Structures are given as C-alpha cells and as structure tokens.
Computed example of a mutant assay.
Amino acid sequence: MPDSRHSVSVAGVVVDDQGRALLIQRRDNGHWEAPGGVLEQDEDIITGLRREVQEETGLDVTPTALTGVYKNMTRGIVALVFRCDAAAGSLRQSDETSAFRWVTADEVAELADEAFAIRVQDALIAPSTVPIRQHDGIHILG
C-alpha cells in the first residue's frame, strides 16, 4: 500500500510598497525562494507562517491573503502560500539564509525554479483575499 502521509509547508511572499517580492537565497542549496518551511505538528497555520518567515528573514509579517495551494507530487508536500506585509523587524541572515533580494514578477522567473517562481508570481497578482482559518475538526478556532 502506498504511503498516504503528506507534509504541509507555508511560505510568505513579503511584498514591499513598490510591488516587489522578497526572495531569500537558501544556504543549503543556493536556490532563491520565498521564505517558509514545514509546519510543526502542534502549530496553527498563521503561527507557523510567521515563525518561518521571522526565522529566515528577521521580519515580523502580517499575512493578507492566501494566494495559492501547491503540491509537490514527488515528495508529497502541500504548500500554502500567503501574500504578506512586513510589520516590523529588519532583514538579517540566518543559518538557513545567505542573501536577500527584492524582485519583480519577471525577475523571479530568472532567479527561481519554475515551481517556486510561480508561487511568487501568483502572490504578486492576487486580486482578492481568501479567509485564513484554523479548525479542530468541528469548530473554527480563533
């Protein structure tokens, strides 16, 4: 029987007042991506998003819209991507991040792999907001 387990990750596409997205360069492989990572088992979606972005960039963010849901079919990873505003903090490198770059939708296509570039491009053109909610299987939480 095939393994039916999935991993859930989150990414924050932080957008500045010029409409550019923040990319990080990962230390482990040198790839350019939006900041993010895997949710912890006991963590709600927004808390995990804020934690991952803060760990990788030094920024505290406010998510404004869920802009896409993506699945890596090879690895079984479901990614939730959010457009975010920077609320506080300043950019700093981390154990996971070696560089930062603010990019346009066209520039991200030149820097990032297609599967990651499209997430940023979708977030930059997101026309409306989508509710962001957590539940316990029956009731909405928070």
Score class of each variant (00 low, 15 high):
Thr74Glu: 11
Glu114Ile: 11
Val108Glu: 07
Ala34Leu: 09
Asp28Gln: 11
Ser7Ala: 14
Glu96Gln: 14
Trp102Glu: 09
Arg101Val: 07
Ala88Thr: 05
Ser90Pro: 01
Gln93Lys: 14
Ala112Trp: 08
Ala11Gly: 12
Phe82Ile: 06
Ser98Ala: 14
Arg101Phe: 02
Val15Ala: 01
Val61Ile: 15
Asn29Pro: 04
Val10Thr: 10
Gly48Trp: 01
Ile77Val: 15
Leu39Ala: 04
Ala21Asp: 03
Glu40Asn: 12
Gln41Pro: 11
Gly30Phe: 10
Gly48Tyr: 02
Ser90Met: 08
Val38Arg: 15
Asp60Met: 12
Arg75Trp: 06
Trp102His: 10
Asp106Ile: 08
Ile24His: 01
Thr74Leu: 12
Thr104Val: 07
Gln41Met: 11
Val61Met: 00
Gly37Asn: 03
Leu22Ser: 07
Ile46Lys: 10
Thr67Ser: 15
Val10Lys: 02
Tyr70Phe: 15
Asp106Phe: 03
Glu96Trp: 09
Arg20His: 13
Ala115Thr: 06
Arg26Asn: 12
Ile46Leu: 15
Gly30Leu: 10
Val69Phe: 06
Asp113Phe: 08
Arg27Val: 14
Ala115Gln: 12
Trp32Glu: 04
Asp106Asn: 13
Leu59Trp: 14
Gly30Ser: 08
Ala99Met: 04
Ile46Cys: 04
Phe116Ser: 14
Asp44Thr: 07
Thr57Glu: 01
Gln18Tyr: 08
Met73Ser: 12
Phe82Gly: 01
Glu33Thr: 15
Val81Gln: 05
Gln54Pro: 00
Ala112Asp: 05
Ala79Lys: 13
Asp113Trp: 10
Arg26Asp: 07
Arg75Pro: 00
Ala88Val: 06
Gly68Glu: 04
Ala115Asp: 12
Thr104Glu: 06
Phe100Asn: 10
Val103Phe: 08
Glu56Gly: 01
Leu91Asn: 06
Leu59Gln: 04
Asn29Gln: 08
Lys71Asp: 06
Arg83Ile: 00
Val69Glu: 13
Thr47Met: 04
Arg26Glu: 13
Gln54Leu: 10
Arg26Pro: 01
Val78Asn: 09
Ala65His: 07
Cys84Asn: 06
Gly19Cys: 10
Val81Lys: 03
Val10Phe: 02
Arg101Thr: 11
Ala65Tyr: 00
Leu39Arg: 00
Arg20Asp: 03
Thr97Trp: 04
Gly68Met: 06
Lys71Thr: 11
Val78Asp: 12
Arg20Gln: 15
Asp16Pro: 02
Glu114Cys: 05
Ile46Arg: 13
Thr104Arg: 08
Ala99Phe: 05
Phe100Gln: 10
Ala88Phe: 04
Gly36Phe: 00
Phe82Arg: 02
Thr74Pro: 00
Thr97Gly: 11
Val81Gly: 02
Pro35Leu: 04
Arg92Thr: 08
Val103Pro: 05
Val8Gln: 11
Leu23Met: 10
Leu49Ala: 03
Leu22Met: 09
Asp42Glu: 13
Gln93Phe: 05
Ala65Asn: 05
Arg75His: 14
Pro35Asn: 02
Glu56Ala: 01
Ile77Asp: 06
